[in-house]
């Protein structure tokens, strides 16, 4: 394993939240810029409200990484609209991250189940 890989694993074990939210927002259907902002707000329960500059910074990075692609370009009501879709690499990356998160949640549940009876027993 190269030093770069060790450093990356040490500092960046999981997908960044904006990336995860964007890929999740595109998982079921292609969407345009403003629809992505709305979808991300809905997925995060209103916690993340992505602004235009931040959104396009993330979109440009994901385009360059090949995780998303431009599905179509059209003019709606006189406004330019570009629709983005998940690329195959993005679908694979999202599935891998979902597996990783699922494993963490399962482990958290298991440990909570082990400790709950002990807590109950202590107060019995």
């Amino acid at each position: 394993m190269q030093f770069t890989d060790i450093y990356r694993r040490m500092t960046e074990r999981s997908m960044q939240e904006p990336t995860l939210l964007l890929l999740t927002a595109l998982a079921d259907a292609p969407r345009h810029g403003y629809a992505l902002i709305q979808e991300i707000a809905a997925i995060s329960g209103g916690r993340v409200r992505m602004r235009t500059g931040t959104l396009y910074g993330a979109l440009d990075r994901l385009l360059q990484q090949g995780l998303i692609r431009v599905e179509s370009e059209e003019v709606v009501d006189g406004r330019a609209r570009r629709t983005y879709a998940l690329a195959d690499a993005g679908r694979t990356a999202l599935a891998a991250e979902a597996d990783r998160l699922r494993a963490v949640v399962a482990e958290a549940d298991r440990r909570l189940t082990v400790i709950r009876p002990r807590i109950k027993g202590a107060f019995a």
Partner: peptide, 21 residues
């Protein structure tokens, strides 16, 4: 104004190469 600030900040990042890509 907050939205414009964020939009302009990304423009500056593109100009200086300080984008996440």
């Amino acid at each position: 104004l907050r939205e414009a600030y964020d939009l302009g900040a990304y423009g500056l990042r593109l100009r200086t190469g300080l984008t996440s890509a």
